[in-house]
Amino acid sequence: MANYNLTTPLTEEVVRKLRVRDVVTLQGTIFGIRDLTQIYIFDRGNEPPVSLQGAACIHTAPSLKKVGDRWEKICVGTTTSGRMDRFTPLLMEKYGVRAIIGKGGQYQASLDAMKKFGGCYLAIVGGAAAVETKQIVEVEKVYFEELHPEALYQFRVKDFGPLTVAMDSHGNNLYTEVKKAAEGKLPEIYKRLGI
């Protein structure tokens, strides 16, 4: 379980070093995305107006308010990643995204893409939105503004984390590992309960 303090954009070399259970703290820029952002990009054919090469993308629908032409944060939290599984391989292959930040994890297709292109899934503590909001220093830019709260957000962050590497580029998925171990314990648990 190693600790990494990484600055974006992330390189393939750095991401390939990461193993499940490692702890990552991010500096620099992260991009906020959600269901509609990705439907808009991939299903409706709109190119992101900013480079996502080496990017870390967080699954979020932030509460922001617009003051003049600036966006101010109110509360930024993380949403369940499972719903957006089909987009992760595309983000990695087409745009060079290297890290997905979310809660709940993703599935096999995403894991395969992480292995192939050098990506990872970083688990945040779901529900800990106060900490997350504090670590976002500034909303630098909102692209596809008409989609808000599911636009494409560029956040400047400081000491963003700690994030747990829950899926790595070596084919490991901590969620399925934990679930498998739990299933292994079931017969013993059933017995104790008289099932």
Partner: peptide, 28 residues
Amino acid sequence: NPTAKEIFKTILANVELADKESMLICQD
């Protein structure tokens, strides 16, 4: 479990911060 301990730390820090600065504990 070291991962779990780390998560608890964040949870407790979040509660404290939300309380102190009157922020939402969770966005949903």
